[in-house]
Simulated assay, not measured.
Amino acid sequence: MAASLYLVAGKTTDSVTHGFLPAAARLGLETVLLTDRPTAHAGTFGGPVVDCDVSDFREIIAAVGRGEPAAVFSNSDFLQAPAALAAAYFGLPAKDWRAATRAKNKALMRRHLASLDPVFSADACRVPPDAPYPLVLKPREGVASEDVFLVQDAAELATRRDEIAAHRDGPLVAEEYLPGRLHTLETLGDGRELRILGSFRTTVSPPPFFVEERLEWTEPPPETPAVLEQLEAMGVGFGACHTEFVVHEGRARIIEVNYRLIGDHCDFLLADLLGVPLFEEILKVHLGAPLRAWHARERRHAVAEPVIADRSGKLTAAPGPLQMDDGPVRLDYRPQRAVGDTVALTRTNRDYLGTVRAIGPEAGEVDAALARFRDAHDWTIA
C-alpha cells in the first residue's frame, strides 16, 4: 500500500493544484486532501477529499487518524501551525508550531525579535501619540497586501482603521515604516541544514498601497546573514520559507515571514531557475529525507511580472495559459482570473489577472521579451 500524504489546504491555489499534488503523485504517494472547502478542491483533484475544520489541529488529527500518515503538510499561510501540531502528534517531521505561530502573527514576531531588531509595533487601536509616523497599518495575520496602508498621522490611521473594520474582522497592527530596497529570501530546511534557494528584488506600487508589481531574480544581498540570524531566533529551519525584508544603509530588517513556499507563480519560476523538482524536494523533507546536493545551474536572469487590473468590472478578454520562446527567453503565462470573472479592484495582490514568467541569459533580453509579450496580448475589463 502506498504511503499516505495528508495535505491540509484552505482555498484552491495553483501551488497546490499544479505543484504539490502532481509532485506527490510522482513520488508515488497516496494523497488525501483535508480542507474546509471540499467542493472547490473536488473540481481540481481526483483523489479523496475530506471535509475538515483545518484551522483546528484536533480535527486534522481526527481526520488523519483514519489512515496511516507518512506526512502531514500544508502550504497555506493560515494553516502552518495546526498542520505542524497534527504532524507532531503522529511523530512525523514537522515545523515547530511555535515558530509557525510567530511567523503568522506579526505582533508576536515583532515581540520575539525585539532584542535583535526593535521595530515599533502596536495594536492599531492603542497607538500612542508619540508613535513614529508614518506607520504601516495591516491585519495582524493578513496576507497578499490586503488592507495594508501607509498612514501619515493619527487622523489617517483612524480613517483607514474604520474603513477596514467595515468589511473585516480581526485585530490590526500599526508598525514603523521600514524604508529601503525590498528583497525576498527563499529557503528550504530539513531540520539540520537551512539552504538558501535564492532571492528576488521586489518592486511595489506607490504609497499608500503595497501591491507587488515585479519580482526580479538577484543574488541575495550582502546583508542576508542578519536575516538568517533572525530566522534562527524565530525557530524557522524546516521546510520552505519565504521571507520579505528591506535593506537600508547596510542594515537588513524583516518585513514579514511567510513560513511556506513563495506564491503568485514565483514558486514555478524558482523551480525552473534551480533546475530541480522543487515541489518534490519540499515534500521529501516532510517525509523525513535530508536535503540532497544540487548542482548549480548557469546564471540566468528571471522576472515574474503580474498583469494587474486597473479598474473594477468584468474581464472580457485575456489570454489563457501560454508557453513560448522569444529568442533565448522562455516565457510562461498562467492566468489567475478567467474571462467572464468579475474583478473588484482592491489595490492588493488580489488584483492580479495573471503572471508572466520569463527566463533568459541577460536582463535586457528578458525585459524586451516581456514587453513584446504584453504588447501582443489584451486584458480587457469592461
Rank of each mutant, 00 (worst) to 15 (best):
M1L: 06
A2P: 01
A2E: 01
Y6P: 01
V8A: 07
G10Q: 05
K11Y: 01
T13G: 09
D14R: 07
S15M: 13
V16G: 12
V16I: 13
T17F: 00
G19Q: 09
L21Q: 05
P22V: 02
L29E: 01
V32C: 02
L33C: 00
L33N: 00
R37E: 12
F45Y: 13
P48G: 02
V49H: 04
C52T: 13
E59S: 08
E59Y: 01
A71R: 07
V72E: 04
S74M: 15
S74C: 14
S76Q: 07
S76P: 04
F78S: 15
Q80H: 11
P82G: 04
A83W: 14
L85I: 06
A87Q: 14
P93W: 14
K95N: 12
T101C: 11
R102L: 09
R102D: 03
R110H: 02
S115C: 01
V119E: 11
F120G: 05
C125D: 15
D130S: 14
P134F: 11
E141V: 06
S145V: 14
E146V: 09
E146K: 12
E146I: 08
D147C: 14
V148F: 10
V148L: 14
A155M: 05
E156N: 08
E156Y: 04
L157C: 05
L157T: 02
D162F: 02
R168S: 15
R168I: 09
G170W: 09
G170Q: 14
A174F: 08
E176Q: 15
Y177G: 03
P179Y: 11
G180P: 05
H183V: 07
H183T: 04
T187F: 08
L194E: 09
L194Y: 12
R195W: 06
R195S: 06
I196N: 10
G198Y: 06
R201D: 13
T203I: 00
T203P: 00
T203Y: 00
V204L: 08
V204M: 04
P207I: 02
E213I: 09
L215F: 08
P220G: 05
P220A: 07
P220F: 02
P220D: 04
T224Q: 15
L231G: 10
E232Y: 05
M234N: 07
G237T: 10
H242C: 08
V246K: 04
E249A: 15
G250C: 00
G250V: 06
R253H: 06
E256W: 14
L261F: 10
D264H: 15
D264N: 15
H265C: 11
A271Y: 06
P277A: 10
L278V: 03
E281I: 10
K284W: 07
K284E: 12
P290S: 10
L291G: 00
R292I: 00
R292G: 11
A293F: 01
V303S: 01
A304I: 05
D310Q: 14
R311Y: 00
G320C: 13
G320P: 13
P321R: 12
Q323L: 09
M324N: 01
G327R: 12
G327P: 12
G340V: 10
Y352K: 11
Y352H: 10
L353F: 07
L353K: 05
T355R: 03
A358H: 11
A358Y: 02
P361L: 06
D367K: 03
A369G: 07
L370G: 03
R372D: 02
D378R: 15
W379A: 05
A382T: 04
